[in-house]
Amino acid sequence: MLVAGNLVLDLLAWPVTELRWDGTIWVDEFARSVGGNGANTSYTLAKMGVEVMLAGAVGKDAEGTELLGLLEDVGVETSGVKRLALPTPTTLAMVKKTGERAFVHRPGASRGALTKALRMPKAEHFHVANPFGVPALRTLAPENLRRAKKAGMTTSLDAGWDSRGEWGSVVLPCLEWVDVLFVNEEEAMLISGAKSWQAAIPLLPAKRVVLKRGKQGAVVDGVAVPGYTVAAMDSTGAGDVFAGAWIAASLRGQPPVAATQFANAAAALSVTKLGSIAGVRSFRQTAQWMQAQHRSSLQPA
Results as ranks from 00 to 15, higher is better:
52 V>P: 02
53 M>D: 03
57 A>H: 03
57 A>Y: 03
57 A>N: 11
60 K>V: 04
61 D>T: 08
62 A>I: 12
63 E>G: 10
63 E>K: 12
64 G>W: 00
66 E>F: 12
66 E>K: 09
67 L>P: 10
70 L>K: 14
71 L>A: 03
72 E>Q: 10
76 V>H: 00
77 E>N: 08
78 T>D: 00
79 S>H: 14
80 G>Y: 05
82 K>N: 04
83 R>G: 04
83 R>S: 13
84 L>F: 05
86 L>R: 11
88 T>G: 04
89 P>K: 10
90 T>L: 15
94 M>P: 05
95 V>C: 10
95 V>G: 12
96 K>G: 11
96 K>L: 03
97 K>T: 10
99 G>I: 09
100 E>H: 14
101 R>P: 08
103 F>S: 07
103 F>M: 14
104 V>C: 14
106 R>W: 08
108 G>I: 06
109 A>W: 08
110 S>L: 08
110 S>P: 07
110 S>N: 15
111 R>A: 06
112 G>L: 06
112 G>T: 03
114 L>P: 01
114 L>H: 04
114 L>C: 04
115 T>P: 01
115 T>A: 15
116 K>Y: 09
117 A>Y: 01
118 L>D: 02
119 R>I: 13
120 M>Y: 08
122 K>I: 00
122 K>H: 02
124 E>D: 15
126 F>Q: 00
128 V>I: 15
128 V>N: 07
128 V>P: 07
131 P>M: 08
132 F>M: 10
132 F>T: 03
133 G>E: 01
133 G>K: 01
133 G>P: 03
136 A>Y: 06
137 L>V: 06
138 R>A: 07
138 R>Q: 12
139 T>E: 15
139 T>H: 13
140 L>G: 03
143 E>T: 14
145 L>Q: 05
146 R>L: 13
149 K>T: 00
149 K>D: 01
